Computed example of a mutant assay.
Amino acid sequence: MADIEEEVNLKSGSLRTDKKKKRKKLLLQEATAAEMAEIEEEANMTTLKEEANLEPSDVRMDKKKNRKKLLLKEAAAAEKRGICYLSRIPPRMDPLKLRQILSQYGEIQRIYLTPEDPAAQIYRKRAGGFRGQEFSEGWVEFSKKSVAKMVAKMLNGEQIGGKKRSLFYYDLWNIKYLSKFRWDDLTEEIAYKNAIREQKLALEISAAKRERDLYLSKVDQSRALTSIRERIKKKQKVQNELGMASELAPEQQAPKVIRQFPQTRPVDNAEKSKPRLSKDILAGVFGVS
């Protein structure tokens, strides 16, 4: 019986070892398959990236040529466009309303309206007026120069019109065609004005900071002087109470403030220039010996 039990135990042990080995093999196969799939995915991604980055020279040349063509087309179209200048924008008119009114005369590309001064806007709001954004002047770009010239000649000085209920019925057009003027000139001018404004603001802020620092330094000096004077007074009181002479060092004494005022010197030129009579002549006239 003992021999049989030993044989059974050996067989069960061998079966367990075989199962473990099979499990290890399966796990290794699964791990290798997953790793291989990940490696293949990474390789595919790298190839796609390389293909996207490393384009052939022909494709690059074609892209450059297309860009040049687009730029040339835009430049040619910009030369054909015309710009009109509006010296006055009616109250409560915005770019959308201006486009609606002027688009009936021709195709409009771009519109730029300069906002009013913020100080004037604040004053108007405080006075109970219109609380929205208003504009002072503007530029309108038409797709054709001939249309821009025609609009400027036809509308300058005329009534805006429309329905009588509209807010712009009684306002007049102040419009002028700008010859040899491009939209790039406008953008450059706006950028230049903004840069100047920023420089002025920076200078004003620096000057204000200097004034503030100087004022604070003076305040600190005055506080220090007042504290010194108070201490000197306290010491003098203590010495007077004790009957001692107040002999303080010159450094501890209160600083004397000497103020100098400009003085005008007397003019003696008038007295010197006056002729004076001698004593002999006066004695002969009055008979004084």
Rank of each mutant, 00 (worst) to 15 (best):
V147C: 11
A34C: 05
L96F: 06
E134P: 00
K180A: 07
L214T: 07
P95C: 00
A119M: 09
P275V: 07
R92V: 10
A2L: 12
E158W: 11
M45C: 03
I89N: 01
N66G: 05
E6R: 14
R126Y: 07
K149N: 06
K193I: 11
E40C: 01
E38G: 02
Q253E: 14
F168W: 15
K144A: 13
E30V: 13
Y169N: 02
Y170V: 05
A31H: 10
Y177G: 03
N269I: 15
K68P: 03
A120G: 01
I258Q: 13
Y112E: 06
A207M: 12
A2S: 13
R276Q: 09
P255M: 13
K73S: 07
K274E: 11
A33V: 06
T187I: 11
I111L: 06
N66W: 05
P56M: 05
R259H: 13
S179H: 09
E158Q: 15
P275L: 08
S87A: 11
Q199I: 04
S278V: 04
K235Q: 04
A31M: 14
F168S: 08
K21F: 09
L242P: 01
A148I: 11
A119K: 15
E107V: 12
R223H: 09
A75Q: 14
A152S: 11
R99P: 01
E5K: 15
L242V: 04
E5Y: 07
K68M: 10
K279Y: 08
